[in-house]
Amino acid sequence: MSLLTGMPAVRARLDRRSALWQADWVLVLGVVALAAIGALLIWSATHQRSSLTGGNEHAYLVRHALNFAIGSVLAVGAALTEHRRVRIFAPLLYVASLVGLILVLVPGVGAVINGSRSWIELPWLSVQPSEFAKLAVIVGMALLIAEKGETNHRESARTVDVAQAIGVAAVLVVLVMLQPDLGTVMVLGSIVFGIIAVSGVPKRWMLGLVSAGTVIAALAIQFNVLKEYQLARFVAFADPSQDPQGIGYNVNQARIAIGNGGVFGQGLFHGSQTQNAFVPEQHTDFVFTVAGEELGLIGAGAIIALFVLILWRGLRIAVNARDAFGRLVATGVVCWFAFQAFENIGMTLGIMPVTGLPLPFVSYGGSSMFAGLLAIGLLQNIHLRSHQV
């Protein structure tokens, strides 16, 4: 009897060891490398800014490392969660994100930072629900489309199933737009587009989504949903020289910083723009400018190469997924990271408008790190399931 009762524990240990060996370690190392580079860049951008650090030059370095450690625990938990439980948790994540997005709009609960009511200030930390909304849209849409397909024994989603999935995403998109957080809305749009693209619906759906997005953007401008500073960012994107000391200041300083780096950079902790604090929000939204100035083309190129590596591994996981849910989740995560990295790097180079999006795993920010690492954990979960016999 004792032998039989001990078998489940032995089997669980063997499963954990098997998961350790079968994990996608290329994906893991790519994420760890990005976070490590981010730690150095954040340290360089903040160690001389006592107004940020309160006199502790290592403050943001330690916080970034702590965020990564906590996020890694969440990632491991997501990776080792039994597949059926992941589906059970998906609606809970969606509801939690929905509640969070509603709470930030409540006066006295949501905090306004940089013109957007996107944060809930707690005594010990600040939470940005819109970061977790990205993950909620992915698992919510994937679960709905996959469950409907499995129930009806279909490999491709029906039009009504896709319409319902878009409705699920639209609720969160509207709440994020009301903050307003245009950058996150753009990321959510890319996620929805990617998931629908691989769901098996006719191609006319893609044209319909693009047309709907264009109409919604026009209505948002027409009815003043977007703030004046957000519209001004698009003006600055089109012509940064129009207001170089105002709305165009960030873009111009970012270009100068990256241009200063040349091929090999000015050296870590030695960038003139960075160390003199000419670039605003350099440890968060504009962290790539630190890499461009202090590590040069080689260092900045290495960051881009690491993102390409992560996206490649994510696409492999999507292709090899054993079910529609895994394929759709992996596709959504890849679209999320691809668009957000492109937008963040693009706005520092002046080829995309400034939207306030962090660079995944590199920028400072707890909510962004936690949500991103949870997504990596889900990718590992799908990967491990595809290797089960």
Rank of each mutant, 00 (worst) to 15 (best):
T284K: 12
G299I: 00
F286V: 00
W312E: 11
A302L: 15
V290R: 02
A305L: 14
I298N: 05
W312H: 15
D285E: 09
F286G: 02
G314I: 10
L295V: 02
V290C: 02
D285Q: 10
V308N: 13
W312N: 14
V290G: 04
L309F: 10
L309P: 03
L309V: 13
A291T: 02
L306G: 12
H283R: 11
T289L: 01
V308P: 09
F307W: 14
F288R: 01
F288N: 00
R313F: 14
F288L: 00
I304H: 14
A305N: 05
T289E: 01
E293N: 09
L311F: 15
L297G: 10
L311C: 14
G296M: 10
T284Y: 13
E293D: 03
I310N: 11
D285S: 12
I303M: 15
T284F: 13
H283G: 01
D285C: 11
E293P: 03
A300S: 15
T289C: 03
I298E: 05
I303K: 10
F307Q: 08
R313K: 15
I303Y: 06
I298R: 06
G292D: 07
Q282N: 05
T284R: 14
F288K: 07
I298P: 03
I304P: 12
V290M: 07
A291W: 03
V290A: 02
V308H: 14
L309Q: 11
V290D: 01
G301L: 06
T284I: 13
G296V: 09
V290K: 04
I304M: 15
L306D: 09
G301R: 08
G314P: 10
E293R: 04
G314D: 08
G301K: 01
L297K: 11
T284S: 13
E294V: 05
L297M: 15
G296C: 09
T289R: 00
G292S: 10
